[in-house]
């Protein structure tokens, strides 16, 4: 079991306490391709941020690759994020004053990889994603789809075991959304990377092998979707 949550609770307290996660139990195996669905405000992003050790939880247990994730120092957490996890965000989160290739290189900088090696690897990943020609462009010179592919390249470059994507297609048109989902699917199948996608689009969720529904702060139905028949819409053809 790569990811295991037992009774995880999370309350935000900005003046008025807001109990968002009310005892989440969830297991995700290595190599799975899952989506998390739920209404707006149901706590999907909160859950994903906890999985990515970007945020902490109040009670319960979170086991990642057999290790209990609790009371980590910022340095340890940074190290986990760097080596185990790749993030893909709805708003891309590229550094605006760095070119595509510099953005992709950055996680390796924090691993202490030499400049030359970094650059070679970043170019290799950009090539994989068909972005060679865009390597020296700045984010504001690229389309949303291109930016998201740069972000995916950046998430992949450290060869993480998990990719966490929070509404990766949220800012993209339907055609580009399909491309991005196909890309994630290929990475899951060819490289065996565990991928967790948060979305509220059924068409996007239908591309994944398992759909986890979250409702009122707890896990609801878990749909097996190996046949990709959970949704018969026309969008994701």
């Amino acid at each position: 079991m790569l990811i295991e949550l037992k009774g995880v609770n999370k309350t935000y307290d900005n003046g008025q306490p807001l109990h968002v996660l009310k005892g989440i139990d969830l297991s995700i195996e290595r190599g799975e391709f899952v989506s998390i669905m739920g209404a707006s405000g149901s706590g999907k992003s909160t859950l994903l941020n906890i999985l990515g050790i970007l945020d902490n939880y109040d009670t319960g247990e979170y086991w990642l690759d057999g290790k209990l994730i609790r009371d980590l120092s910022e340095k340890q957490a940074a190290d986990y994020r760097n080596r185990m996890i790749g993030f893909v965000f709805q708003s891309f989160n590229l550094i605006s004053f760095k070119t595509a290739v510099e953005n992709v290189e950055l996680p390796l900088y924090y691993q202490g990889v030499s400049r030359k090696k970094r650059h070679e690897m970043a170019m290799e990943y950009l090539e994989k994603l068909g972005l060679t020609d865009w390597a020296s462009h700045f984010p504001n010179e690229m389309s949303g789809g291109q930016k998201q592919r740069v972000a995916i390249a950046r998430a992949l470059i450290t060869r993480p075991q998990i990719i966490l994507a929070d509404e990766p297609t949220g800012a993209l048109d339907s055609k580009t959304s399909v491309e991005v989902m196909q890309l994630l699917k290929r990475l899951n199948q060819e490289e065996g990377i565990t991928i967790i996608v948060v979305t509220h689009e059924s068409g996007v969720a239908n591309e994944t092998d398992k759909i986890i529904h979250i409702k009122d702060g707890i896990i609801g139905e878990i749909e097996e979707n190996k046949a990709h028949t959970a949704w018969d819409g026309t969008m994701m053809k």
Binding site: G52, L54, E74, K75, A78, D79, R81, N82, R83, F87, N93, L94, I95, L106, P107, Y110, Q111, R154, T158
Partner: peptide, 15 residues
């Protein structure tokens, strides 16, 4: 925000 991005991809506070 930039520091947030750097942290998400593995920068420690010391970095």
């Amino acid at each position: 925000h930039e520091f947030g991005i750097r942290k998400a991809i593995g920068a420690s506070p010391a970095e």
